[in-house]
Design a protein around this nucleic acid. Structure first.
Lengths: 172, 172
DNA sequence: TATTGTTATACTCTATAACTATA
DNA sequence: TATAGTTATAGAGTATAACAATA
C-alpha cells in the first residue's frame, strides 16, 4: 500500500516521495473533522439544550438501551466509573434519567430515561442529524455521508484489537 | 435520504422506524472511532516519545510547514493562542522546535523544527501510520482506509461553513 | 483599530485512590 | 477475589482576561 492514492499531490516540499505524511494519519484527520462536528453539536444541542457532548451521548444511549447499568455505559464510552456517576448525577438532577435498583444484582443500578429525557434526546438527535447533513451537503454527497458513517463504525469495531478491554462488543 | 442504508438493522426496540438514531450521528461515530485512534497514538507515540496528541500535531505541522507563525498554527488546530504558546514552550524546551523573529513583521515569530524535531516527527508519524494500518487491517480494506481519509478531509473542509473563522483555508 | 504573542488565572473534564456493598 | 457504584482529590487540558508590542 504505497502512498499513491487518488489524485492527491503526494510530493513533499523537498521533492522526496514516500515520506510519512500527516495527511494520512487517521487520528489527525479525525481531529480535524471533529472541529466541524463539535461546532455543529455546540450550536445545535450544546447551547440550546445546555448539554455537553458526553451528557447527550449518555442520555441517548440510555434512551436507546433502557435498563442498562452504569458500568455498561462506562465501558461503551470508554469513560471511567467516577465520571459516569457524575454525568448521571447531572442528568438525574435535571429529571432526564433515573436510577432504579436491579432486582437480580443488588449492586447494580438500572438506568431509564424519563419522558422528558426521551423527548429531549429525540429532539437533540434530530437537530444534529439535520445540521450535520446540511453542513456536509456542500462537501459530501448523500452516499459519501452514509459510507463515512459505515467506515467510522468499522474503525470503532477495531477497538477490541487495540485495547484489552472487552467492551464495544455490545455495540451499545 | 431515508434511513434505509446498506443492510443494517434500522429497527428500534419498539419497532418504530425513522426514529432519530444515534448511529447516524456523525459526531457520535467520530467519538467512538477516536477511542481507537487515541489508543493507537498513546501506545505508539504518546508513551514512547512522551508527546501529547496536540504536541505531536503541532510539531509535525511545523516540520511540514517551516516558517509558519503561532497564530497560523492556532487557527489550523482551532486552539487558543495562549495554549499554542504553552505547547510551543514545551516543544522548544525539549529542543524540538525554535522560534525565530520574523524580518517582515516584528510582531511575528516564525517556527522551525530542529533536526531532532524533524527526526522525531518522522519516526512518530511512521509508527502511527504502521500501527493504524495494522489495527484497521482486520476491519477495513486498504481501499476503505484510503476512502475514509478522503472523506474525513472533506468533512474538515466544511469548517468554514459551520464556523465564522476563516481558518482551514490553508490546509495546513 | 486590529493583530501577534505572552502572562495570569479560572474553569472544565478526566484520572486515580480509597471505600462500601454485593456477587 | 472480582465487580458495581460512590466519594474525594489531584491532574491534564482548555478558555478567558488583560497586557505589551507592532501593524
Amino acid at each position: 500500500m504505497p502512498s499513491k492514492r487518488f489524485h492527491r499531490a503526494d510530493t513533499t516540499p523537498a521533492g522526496r516521495l514516500e515520506e510519512a505524511r500527516l495527511h494520512d494519519v487517521l487520528g489527525y484527520q479525525m481531529a480535524q473533522a471533529a472541529i466541524v462536528t463539535d461546532a455543529v453539536f455546540k450550536a445545535q444541542v450544546g447551547q440550546p439544550f445546555g448539554l455537553r457532548p458526553v451528557e447527550y451521548t449518555v442520555l441517548t444511549l440510555i434512551v436507546e438501551n433502557p435498563g442498562g447499568s452504569l458500568a455498561r455505559l462506562a465501558r461503551a464510552l470508554a469513560v471511567t466509573a467516577p465520571n459516569i456517576t457524575m454525568w448521571i448525577d447531572r442528568l438525574e438532577s435535571r429529571g432526564l434519567v433515573r436510577r432504579t435498583p436491579s432486582a437480580n444484582d443488588r449492586r447494580s443500578l438500572l438506568l431509564y430515561a424519563t419522558p422528558q429525557g426521551q423527548a429531549l434526546a429525540r429532539a437533540a438527535t434530530q437537530r444534529i442529524l439535520d445540521a450535520e447533513r446540511q453542513a456536509m451537503a456542500a462537501h459530501l454527497t448523500a452516499g459519501e455521508h452514509a459510507i463515512l458513517l459505515e467506515l467510522l463504525h468499522k474503525v470503532a469495531c477495531a477497538r477490541a484489537a487495540v485495547s484489552g478491554d472487552g467492551a464495544a462488543s455490545s455495540d451499545v
